[in-house]
Simulated scan of single mutants.
Amino acid sequence: MTQAPSDPVSGPEPTAWRDWSELAAAECVKVPGADDDKYTRGVLGVVTGSAEFPGAAVLGVEAAVRTGLGMVRYLGPRRPSRLVLQARPEVVTVAGRVQAWLIGSGMNSATRTESAGELLAHALDDGTPVVIDAGALDLVGRVTGPAVLTPHAGELATLLTAAGFEVDRRAIAAEPERWAETAADSTGCVVLLKGRVTHVCSPLRDGVRTAARIEAPSSWAATAGSGDVLGGVVGAVVATHADEAGDPARLVALAATGAYVHAWAADRASNRGPIAALDIAAAVPRIIARLASGSAD
C-alpha cells in the first residue's frame, strides 16, 4: 500500500500554509464594469442533485447566484430541475456555453444513473475549469482541465484509499495539511479539504506548492447542506475568473476565497446562534459587498 511522504530530511521542504485574509479574498472578487454582460460576468454550469437528494441542487444554485456571476445553467433530473426553477426562475436549464462547472453535490456514485453519468462526463471532458464535490469525486481521473476537489475528511479518505493509501477519516482529521497535500499530488488537482479549518492546496510542481488555510469564526456552519452552499460559492468565484484558473496558484486563491466567503457568510447569518444552509447562502451578498468595497461593516 502507498504511504504519504513523511521524511523531513530527504523529502521536499515543508509547505508554507498561508492564513487567507480578508484582503486576499477581496483581490479575488470581480466587480462588474460598464461593458460587462451576463456572459462576460461568468456562466456556471451545474450538474448536481438527484432523486434522493434534490435539495443539494437548490442550495448550490442559490449560493452561486448570490455570489455574483452572470448566469447559472442547471442540468439535472426532472425533480431537482423543478425545485431549482421554483427557487430561482432566472436559472437556465438548457445546455450552452459556460466558463466553469460545479458537479457532484447531492449525488451518489453508487446509484448514479446513465443520464447523470453522461452529464458529468460532458462537464469533465470539455477542459473547462470544474469544481468537483461528493458524488463525482470518483471521476477525478477523467479531469481534462483545471479542477478543484471539495471533499470532507470522509470523502477524502475514500478517494485516497481507492488510490492505494492507508488512511481513514480520523487520520485525515488529525493531519489535514499532510493529507490535503497528498491528495493534491495524487490527483494533480487543487484540493479544498472542508472543516472548521479549511485547507486548500495545489499539487507540488517543480518544488512549488501554494497552500491556504481558512479558519471559520464558529462551527454553526456544520449543518446539512452547508457543503452544497460552499460548492456553489466556489464554483461562482471560479466562473468569474475562469481565464485565470489554469494557474494552480491562482486556482488555490479562488477556491480559498470561496471558502472565506462561505465561512463569514455563516458567521453573519448565525449571529452566534443556529442556522440552516439557506441562511448561509442568503448572507453571501453582504460578504461579497464588503470585500468588493473594502469598507468596514
Rank of each mutant, 00 (worst) to 15 (best):
Y260T: 02
T257D: 01
A276Q: 13
V252L: 11
A283W: 03
N271Q: 15
A269G: 12
I275C: 11
P274N: 09
A253I: 00
A276D: 10
A289V: 06
G258W: 07
G273I: 00
A263R: 07
D267G: 12
A276Y: 10
R286I: 00
A277K: 03
Y260P: 00
L291S: 01
A277Q: 02
L291T: 01
L254K: 04
L278A: 13
I275V: 15
R272S: 13
N271M: 12
T257V: 05
R268K: 11
A253C: 10
G258A: 11
G258Y: 08
N271G: 13
G273C: 10
A292K: 10
A255E: 05
R286M: 10
A292E: 13
L254R: 06
A255V: 06
S270D: 08
R286F: 09
G273D: 14
A253R: 14
L291P: 01
I275W: 08
R268C: 01
A289L: 12
A283T: 03
A253Q: 15
A277W: 02
P274Q: 11
A266I: 08
A256E: 05
R286G: 09
A255T: 06
T257G: 04
I287G: 01
P285T: 07
P285V: 05
A255P: 03
T257W: 00
A269R: 11
A255M: 06
P274K: 09
A265F: 09
I288P: 02
A259M: 06
A283K: 00
A265H: 10
P285F: 06
L278W: 13
R286Q: 14
A256R: 05
L278C: 10
L278N: 13
S270N: 12
G273H: 14
A289H: 13
D279L: 07
D279E: 11
V252E: 08
A277M: 08
T257P: 02
L254Y: 07
V284E: 02
A276M: 13
S270I: 07
I288V: 15
V284S: 03
A283H: 04
G258K: 08
A256P: 05
I280Y: 03
A282E: 14
A281C: 08
A266K: 07
D267A: 14
I275F: 11
L254S: 05
G273M: 13
A266S: 15
W264H: 15
I275K: 09
N271K: 14
A269I: 11
R286W: 09
G258C: 11
A265K: 08
V284R: 02
T257L: 04
S270C: 14
A281V: 06
V261W: 00
V261E: 01
A289W: 04
A276G: 08
S270G: 15
Y260H: 04
P274L: 11
A269C: 11
D279N: 10
A289R: 14
P274H: 12
A277P: 06
H262G: 00
I280Q: 06
Y260Q: 00
A255Y: 04
A282D: 14
R272G: 06
W264M: 03
A265W: 08
I288T: 01
A269H: 11
A282I: 02
L278R: 15
L291A: 03
R290N: 03
P285H: 07
V252R: 07
A289S: 15
R290C: 05
I287H: 01
A269L: 12
V261D: 00
R290T: 12
G258I: 07
V252T: 10
V284M: 05
A277N: 06
A263M: 09
A283Y: 04
